[in-house]
Design a binder for these strands. Structure first.
Lengths: 255, 255
DNA sequence: CAGGATAACATGTCTAGACAGGTTGTTCAA
DNA sequence: TTGAACAACCTGTCTAGACATGTTATCCTG
């Protein structure tokens, strides 16, 4: 393997505020996503990466361990590290946002905003648990969207944001294909860290069935959960309804 | 905090073949599970643990990072590390096996073995993908079980094992409440490492509905996937049908 | 008493090594 | 030609520090 060839246009910035292992992780992720590293192909070894970027091997490992947990690569002791063979399933949930995930797979996807409204925080069990609103009566911004892949609707997502976070999405009205996560990270400069989600099977009711273009009573996945910032403050509460026939949840469990 | 009090009966064995971070992880897990560390309570700091067991702080971190990813603890920078506040949801999938998970929550749970059979490997798409059988025609052991919590059935699980692995479960016939994972790890001494699972919503057919004591057409979660050994060899292929009304899937995503 | 500086302590990131042990291919001897 | 030994390379685990940065409580000052 000649890492110089593959890594020639890549570089890390030691003075950046972005941790080195994040930079390395994203370089490898990019190489995988743009096809320079193909499924099954071997990735430069930890020693090669550590020498190439002049960083410690432990730092490289921090990057590759994360990619392994995300399911992008497979690490085999004594043998090497390889790009995970492609499967047709998809992680349902990624903090990067859904659009970029689908784009990577080569699917055109877009969203349609049904409505954006300011509402009073209400007290559903889930909302209360989420910790999103401090007191009932606080104002939240609610965004309802239908998500499409290749003209086929596959999900209805409802996001609840605190007024301070969400009002920037109201005027100008959020574009159909804008990403809420991108907005939060790039415009508001809030770094996201974690999401707690709960998923249950369910049946499509009349309204959902219409929006998703399926029969009433078809199987769906219901999701609700909270996204947290780097400072562990809840940033978004999300409810989603996903078409069961178009969608599956891939889970990789590591002991 | 006085870690000596809490950790007085715990110890690690530096000469063990079990990695130190695994030993520390399991000590903390045990303290959480037996209630000596209660939800929300602060865990001894990384420095305290590192001093207590005379190991490096990086090794302690490897343990706590894993527990964080499993959702057992919450780590807050600058503040400390805490036992995750209990929620009523449950990780669907844990390599430890399901029984111990439920037992931790104080639920009595048991299984009923429907049948154990030797079958010829067949070629469903999923089975083929799993890599479990080398060639069609190989013999597999199939175990079908219904799982109960407090006398209520909530899941039908079908396990497929290679003959070499599974035959020990046929005679004497596997006990109703035996754990396949325990058998594989403790009797066959195969260390398990990873599981790839796919989950989809579905509707209960007649047979499943009867076994699960629900109405035909009720929402269920369908699962299929493969469990891998430490040497990345597929050890088990699992198909499961979970009652939607009794079960939900908790997912913690970390960026 | 309110508010700001600060000290103590927590986790986050990183280094430059070390040795263990798994995998693969080559080399050499029977 | 076959097989065993070995070398080269890989990841797994671990150390003993370092500095950065976030949180909390306390103390001191106005």
């Amino acid at each position: 393997m000649n890492p110089g060839q593959l890594l020639q246009d890549t570089h890390i910035d030691k003075s950046s505020y972005i941790p080195l292992y994040i930079q390395v992780r994203d370089i490898l992720k990019e190489l995988i996503n743009n096809g320079k590293l193909k499924p099954g192909e071997q990735i430069p070894s930890e020693n090669e990466l550590s020498a190439e970027y002049n960083i410690s091997r432990m730092t490289v490992r921090q990057a590759s361990q994360e990619l392994m947990r995300e399911g992008l690569i497979v690490i085999r002791r004594g043998e090497g590290t390889f790009v995970h063979s492609a499967s047709h399933t998809q992680m349902l949930l990624k903090l990067e946002g859904f659009s970029s995930e689908m784009a990577k797979l080569g699917y055109r996807n877009h969203s349609r905003v049904l409505d954006i409204q300011m509402i009073e925080a209400f007290d559903s069990f889930e909302m209360a648990y989420s910790g999103l609103e401090k007191e009932p009566g606080d104002t939240l911004v609610r965004i309802r969207r239908v998500r499409y892949v290749e003209e086929t609707p596959f999900a209805i997502e409802t996001s609840f944001l605190p007024l301070a976070t969400g009002q920037g999405l109201m005027e100008p009205r959020m574009a159909d294909d804008a990403s809420i996560y991108n907005y939060i990270e790039n415009e508001l400069h809030i770094r996201l860290s974690r999401a707690d989600h709960v998923i249950q099977p369910g049946l499509a009711d009349r309204e959902s069935a219409e929006l998703l273009e399926i029969a009433k009573g078809s199987p769906v996945l219901n999701l609700h959960g909270t996204t947290f910032s780097m400072t562990n403050k809840p940033v978004e509460y999300l409810e989603g309804i996903y078409r069961g026939d178009k969608y599956e949840l891939k889970v990789v469990i590591t002991k």
